[in-house]
Design a protein around this nucleic acid. Structure first.
Length: 325
DNA sequence: CATCAGGGCCCTG
DNA sequence: CAGGGCCCTGAT
């Protein structure tokens, strides 16, 4: 496929709240790679379909943990208005939580026995989402009942068939399709991409977005209980998908009702030193994180990410077994 | 070669 | 609220 070259580059400056850990925010080592983004220290490439325009984004570190500064480079086919740029800037601030105030959290738990070391290591890290609610839902559907390796393959197939290849900042990356395009695809075509029964789920999840029945911006304003209810009403979204969506998409950092099995295995070993083959029951983990209220989810994120960053720096044997990528 | 479970969810009884 | 079925694939 010939890439679409995004020749126009415009740059805006963002000053995140301090402290800010750039790399641990924009890159999550436990996430599997998809061909819509690329990371190297100090820089993340990310495609986005924003207000119907395919964009190339580079978010670049220009500051320090104590004095954060970020350049957002926006690549497009034709120039973008000031208003558009400001709009995408605000969206990136939201998605990467660049204006999050985490001082209270840090102060409260920096000496905690389990959480303290993670805070020390990753101080200023934030949860993030790479894209929109729809972008994220596509991933949660492809995660279902499949080993990671297969999820990666399914995402790759989908991007190649229905995505748009963009070239910007000397990288070629795919941009996700518009929901209305996917909603019209015959189920059989999707099945050819070896997504199996997920074809039906992908179609059904695309529909409300194609018909503008789901307004992500509006949902952001609603109470967590309402957000959860609406997410669960979507076909193909269950408790596990919700456990990812509530913090990452809707920034509910105290939301912790469910810990998926593979995370439970890993966290259980880390926290209670159990074997990964017999992890602590979910109840026990939820109870443990109860003490980090009102930051239960944020606390789990720090402990989780800390483990993965350490693993990246010097591989942890037992963790390798749990990643079948 | 067969069998099985995998970073779920829906539907049924 | 428990349990079967769903697509496909790599591991055993």
């Amino acid at each position: 496929m010939q890439p679409v070259k995004l020749k126009v580059k415009q740059t805006v400056v963002i000053i995140p709240t301090s402290p800010f850990n750039f790399d641990a925010t924009v890159f999550k080592p436990a996430h599997f790679p998809t061909p819509d983004s690329f990371w190297q220290p100090g820089k993340r490439w990310q495609t986005a379909l924003w207000r119907r325009r395919p964009l190339g984004l580079i978010i670049e570190n220009k500051g320090t943990i104590a004095k954060p500064k970020v350049h957002l480079h926006v690549f497009s086919q034709t120039g973008l208005s000031k208003e558009f740029l400001e709009n995408i800037k605000q969206e990136i601030i939201w998605r990467f939580n660049l204006h999050l105030n985490s001082k209270d959290f840090i102060e409260r738990f920096k000496t905690d026995k389990i959480l303290g070391p993670a805070i020390k290591n990753l101080k200023g890290m934030r949860p993030m989402t790479h894209g929109s609610l729809y972008d994220f839902l596509v991933i949660t559907i492809m995660l279902q009942n499949a080993p990671v390796r297969r999820s990666i393959q399914m995402m790759q197939n989908l991007f190649e068939k229905y995505g748009k290849l963009l070239e910007f900042g000397s990288k070629k990356l795919y941009c996700l399709w518009p929901a209305e395009k996917l909603a019209k695809v015959p189920e059989q075509d999707l099945r050819k991409l070896k997504v199996g029964y997920r074809a039906k789920n992908l179609l059904r999840i695309s529909l409300p977005f194609a018909k503008n029945e789901i307004d992500e911006m509006e949902l952001r304003q609603k109470l967590p209980t309402e957000q959860k209810k609406i997410l669960l009403s979507l076909y193909g979204v269950g408790p596990q998908s919700v456990s990812y969506l509530m913090p990452d998409i809707f920034h509910n950092f105290d939301f912790l009702e469910h810990v998926p099995l593979w995370e439970r295995k890993i966290l259980s070993k880390k926290i209670f030193n159990t074997g990964t083959e017999n992890p602590a029951p979910e109840e026990k983990l939820l109870k443990f994180f109860g003490k980090y209220k009102p930051y239960k989810q944020l606390a789990m994120h720090y402990i989780w990410e800390d483990l993965w960053w350490r693993h990246k720096q010097s591989p942890i044997d037992w963790l390798i077994k749990e990643v079948r990528a």
